[in-house]
Design a protein around this nucleic acid. Structure first.
Lengths: 327, 327
DNA sequence: GTTGTTTATGTAAAGGATTACATTTTTGTA
DNA sequence: TACAAAAATGTAATCCTTTACATAAACAAC
C-alpha cells in the first residue's frame, strides 16, 4: 500500500507538501494541491493512522468503562458519547469490566500504553484508588457514578432529589407503606437515593421501617423478583415499591403479575432509569428518566477538553419523573 | 514519560536488549534481564503501543459492526468476540452503524487507515458492494447475517431449519392457523426463515396464506404490536404467531395482554433469539436460541486467523428451540 | 535591476518501538 | 592456550507521519 513518499514522488513535490494537503492547510498553491490530489487518487493512497498517531503522540481513542454491555442503562449514554466523540474525530473503545479488577486492569493498561487518550468511567465498582493514581497522568471523567476522592471530574444527576420526588409522588397518591429496593450502600448513588427516600417519608411524617428496605447485590431482574417475594411475606405488606433500577422494578412486576397482585391497584411501582423496556411492560412502568444522551455528550466533551489541557467543571444534570401505568 | 532509550541507558544495555526483554525472548541472560527489569520499574516505563504498532504495521484492533448497540440480540455475540479478542491480545471497537451508510463509511475508513486490522460485520443492512471491495485488501468476516457475494467468510445458523422447527412445534400443538411476523425480505435471514415457515406448513398440508404473513420494517417492539393489531383484525384470526425476533414477539405480547387475549390459550407465540428479556415477560416466551456466545468466539477466531493469513472456512452452528410458557 | 517581503516548498529530525545483521562475549574442545 | 562454534548483545534501518526550520520563488517598491 502506498505511503506518503510515493505520493510525493508521483506528484513531484516533497512529503511536507503532501502532508499539508492532507491536513487541509491553506498555504498550498491550488496548482500543487491539484497535483497532490491527483497522485493520491492514482495511488489509492490512505494516510496511515499508525504513523500519524505516533508522530502526534495520540491514539484518538476514548475508553468507556461499563460493568456490562447488556445493561440498558448505558445505551443512550454511550450513544451520546459516541456521537460527540465522532464529531471530534475520536473513536470509542467500549470496555466491559464485569466489575472484575483484572479486566479493568487490561483496559487501564491501554491508556498507560497510549492505545487510548482518556477514560470515561461508568463502572460503580471501579477501583477508585487505581482510578485516582491513573488520573494523575491521564485524562479521566466519571459519568453517572462518581467518587469525590481524587478530584476526578464527573457528570451526574441529583440522585437524592430524584428519589425524593419519586417517593413523594407515591405519597401524594395516598401510599403510606412504601418499600425501597436499593442496591448495596457501598455505591454512592445507593446512599443518595436512600437519603431521598427517607427525606420524603420524614417530610410527611411517615415511619422509616428497616423491613421495608431491601438491599440487593445486583440491579438485575432476578434480584427484583426475589426482593418482591420478601416484601410479600411481610405481615404488614407495603402498598408501593420504589426500586432504584428499572430492571429491579421489572423483576418485581413479573413476580407481582405471577402472584396475581394487580399493579398499580394493589401495589404501585416506580423504577429508575427509563430503559426502553420500562415502556414495554404490562403495565408500563413509572420511572425516573435521566438525560442519558446528554450525560454522554457532556462526559465526552469534558473528556476531550481535559485531554486538550483545558479546565473542566463537574456537571449535575436534570432528571424527570415519568408517570405511567404502574402508579 | 520514559521511552525505550532511557530504559536502555539506565540499564546500561542497548534498546534491542530492552525490546527483547519486553517481548519475553529467552536469548537474554538472566543477569541482563534483571538489570532491564529494574530500569523499567525505576522509570515506571510502559511501552508505547503507538511505536510498536507502527513498526509492526498493525493496530491490534478489531472492528465490530452492528446496527444498534441497544439490540439485545448482539450482546452475547459481542461478549464472545471480546473474550476471544482479549485472549489474542486484540481489542474491539464496537461500531454502531444505525444502518446509515455514512456512519458505516466512517468505520470502514478506520480499517483503510490502519486503525483497525479487520472487521466482523453483523449489520444486515451493510453495503455489500463496499464490503466486497474492502475485503479484497482487508480481513473481513460476516457474522449471523451474510451474503455469499464476494466470498467473504461467514458464521451463522441454519435459519431455515430453525424456523421450520419452530412452526412444526406450533403445528404439533394443534395450531393450524399460524401467522408469520417477518422482516423485510431483502435480508437473507428473512427469506430463509420464511422458507422454513412454508416448508413446515406444506409438510402438514396447511395452506400458506399471504394475509398471515406480516412484514415489518424493523424488528422492534413497536413493529410487533402493530403487526399484532393487523392480525387481530382478520376475519379468520390465527391462533399462533411465529415472530422472527423476540422484540417483535414481546411487542405482540404487550398488545395481546392489553387486548385481554390469553397467551398461550387463545394465541400461542414464538420468538427468535432468546434475548434476556424473553425470559422476563409474562408469560415467558418460547423462542429459538442461537449459540450467540459461540458465534462470537468463532467469528473472532476466524477473523484473527484471516488477519494472520490463514485460510478460514464458513461455519454453520446449531440452534435450539426453547419451549416456555407462551406455547 | 536591486533589495526586501511574503509566500510556497523542501529538508531532515522526531516520535517509539522491532529486528536483520554485525559484533562481541562466552563456552567448549583440542 | 588457542580456536571454533554458539550465545548474547549492539548498531542502525525501518515503519509513516508531522513540523520546525531552511531555502527557494514570487512579487513589490524604489
Amino acid at each position: 500500500m502506498a505511503n506518503i513518499n510515493e505520493v510525493a514522488k508521483l506528484a513531484g513535490v516533497s512529503v511536507a507538501t503532501v502532508s499539508r494537503v492532507l491536513n487541509g492547510q491553506d498555504v498550498v498553491t491550488p496548482k500543487t494541491r491539484l497535483k497532490v490530489e491527483d497522485a493520491i487518487k492514482k495511488l489509492n493512497y490512505e494516510p496511515s493512522m499508525l504513523g500519524r498517531n505516533l508522530r502526534n503522540s495520540e491514539s484518538r481513542v476514548l475508553l468507556v468503562l461499563i460493568p456490562s454491555i447488556s445493561n440498558p442503562f448505558y445505551f443512550e449514554i454511550i450513544k451520546g458519547i459516541e456521537a460527540t466523540a465522532l464529531d471530534y474525530n475520536y473513536n470509542i473503545l467500549l470496555c466491559e469490566t464485569d466489575s472484575n479488577p483484572e479486566r479493568e486492569n487490561i483496559y487501564f493498561d491501554l491508556v498507560r500504553k497510549k492505545m487510548a487518550d482518556g477514560i470515561i468511567s461508568m463502572d460503580p465498582a471501579v477501583n477508585i484508588d487505581t482510578l485516582k493514581s491513573l488520573s494523575e497522568k491521564h485524562s479521566i471523567i466519571q459519568c453517572s457514578e462518581y467518587s469525590t476522592e481524587g478530584n476526578i471530574p464527573y457528570v451526574t444527576i441529583d440522585n437524592e432529589d430524584a428519589a425524593y420526588r419519586a417517593v413523594k409522588h407515591l405519597i401524594k397518591l395516598g401510599h403510606q407503606k412504601i418499600a425501597l429496593f436499593n442496591s448495596n450502600e457501598k455505591y454512592l448513588y445507593a446512599r443518595q437515593r436512600k437519603e431521598g427516600y427517607i427525606k420524603a417519608l420524614k417530610e410527611f411524617n411517615l415511619p422509616v421501617k428497616e423491613e421495608y428496605m431491601i438491599y440487593t447485590d445486583q440491579l438485575g431482574f432476578d434480584n427484583g423478583s426475589q426482593a418482591t417475594k420478601k416484601i410479600m411475606n411481610l405481615k404488614d405488606r407495603p402498598t408501593a415499591i420504589f426500586a432504584v433500577s428499572d430492571l429491579l422494578a421489572i423483576g418485581a412486576l413479573k413476580e407481582l403479575n405471577s402472584a396475581g397482585v394487580n399493579v398499580p391497584d394493589e401495589m404501585a411501582l416506580i423504577g429508575f432509569d427509563n430503559i426502553d423496556f420500562s415502556n414495554m411492560t404490562h403495565p408500563t412502568l413509572t420511572t425516573i428518566a435521566q438525560p442519558m444522551y446528554q450525560m454522554g455528550t457532556v462526559a465526552a466533551s469534558m473528556l476531550i477538553n481535559k485531554i486538550n489541557g483545558k479546565h473542566v467543571e463537574n456537571t449535575v444534570l436534570n432528571h424527570e419523573l415519568l408517570i405511567r401505568e404502574s402508579t
